[in-house]
Design a protein around this nucleic acid. Sequence first.
RNA 1: GCCGAGGUAGCUCAGUGGUAGAGCGCGGCCCUGAAAAGGCCGGCGUGGGGGGUCCGAUUCCCUCCCUCGGCA
Length: 306
Amino acid sequence: MSLKRIIFLVGPTASGKSAAAVCLARQLGAEIISCDSMQVYRGMDILTSKPSSALRKRIPHRLIGFLPPSREYDVSQYRRDALAAIKAIFKNGKTPLFVGGTGLYLSVLVDGIFKAKPPKSSLRNKLYRQAEIKGSLYLYNHLKKIDPEAAARIHPNDTRRLVRALEVFEATGKPISELQKHRRGLGKEYDIRIFCLDMTRDELYRRIDRRVEGMFKNGALKEAKKLLALKLSRTAEVAIGLREIKGYLDGLYDLEEAKRLMQRNSRHYAKRQLTWFRKDKRIKWIRIKGNERAGDIALRILKEIR
RNA sequence: GCCGAGGUAGCUCAGUGGUAGAGCGCGGCCCUGAAAAGGCCGGCGUGGGGGGUCCGAUUCCCUCCCUCGGCA
C-alpha cells in the first residue's frame, strides 16, 4: 500500500506562493493549510498578505485568521491544529497542501516535536529576570552543567534558547537535548513532498519592495493603527509592519521611513527564510523566471509530483 | 574664469608616511513550545586619473578630471 501524500509549498515572503498554491490545489484536488505564524491572526490581513478572498473562494484554506491577535499561539498549538486539518482533508478525500513561509512550523510537522507541557510563564519570567540581572552568560554556565550537549549548540548570547533549555530542565528534570531526540513527525507515515519557490535575490527584493508599497495603498496604516490599539500577543506584536508603523505614529520618523524599514526588515526576513530552507535537503527547489505565471509554476510542480 | 571645501567600502563618513577602518546596507550561518522572533560570523576596497619625492604614499608635492559652495 502506498503512503498518502502531503504536499508543502514553501518559499520566502513575496515569492508568489499563494497564487501558485491555488492553481496547484485545483490540479491536485487539494485543500490548503496555511503554514504561517502570522496569518493565523484575525485582523492582520494586509500586513501579512493573506491570500485574497477571491483565491480563498476557489479553494478552501485552513488555519488563516481564526485567532484574535491577543491570543498567544506557538508551534505546538500549530502542530495540533495542522494535524487536525490534515485529518479533515483526508476525510474529504482530498490532499493536504501546506503553503507558507514559517520554516519552524514546517519542520515541526515533518520531523515532529517532543512532548511537553505548555511553558509556565512564571518560570519563564523568573529566568528572564535572572538573565537581566546576572547576564545571559550566567544562564549559559548553568546550562553547561546540567545539559552540556544543549549548551554546545546554543550561543551564550542567545537568551531565548538558554531560557527555553533551562525551563524544560526545571519542569521535567530532563535535559532538553535528550528530549529532543524523541520526535516523530509526518515524514514517517506519509509521502511528503516539499517544494520551495526560488528566484534571483534581486528579483525577490524587488517583489518585496513592491509588496510593501502595495500594503500602504491597501490601507496598511489603518490596519496597523487598529491593531496597535489592542493588547497583542507576543507573536502578533512582532509582525513586520507594526513596530515600523508605530515609530511613525509616535513621531520618530515619517511614513516614507516606516515604509523603508518595512522593506528592509522583510528582506532580512526573506534571507533568513532562505537559510532555513536551504539546509533541508528534502526540498525540491522551483526556480521561477521573471514574471512566470502562477498557473505555469503550478504545472511545473505538478510534473515533479507525478 | 577666480576663490574655498572635498573626491577612501553599495551609502554616509573617520583615520594614518609602513597597502585602511566605523555605522548603515549587503552576504553567509544557527535555530524545534514567542519563529515575520532570537542569536552568531564576514569588509565585501585598483583610497578620482597620471606623474614626482621617499626604502616605502591612501597619507607629502605637481598636474589633470569630477562634485559642492561663494564671487564673477
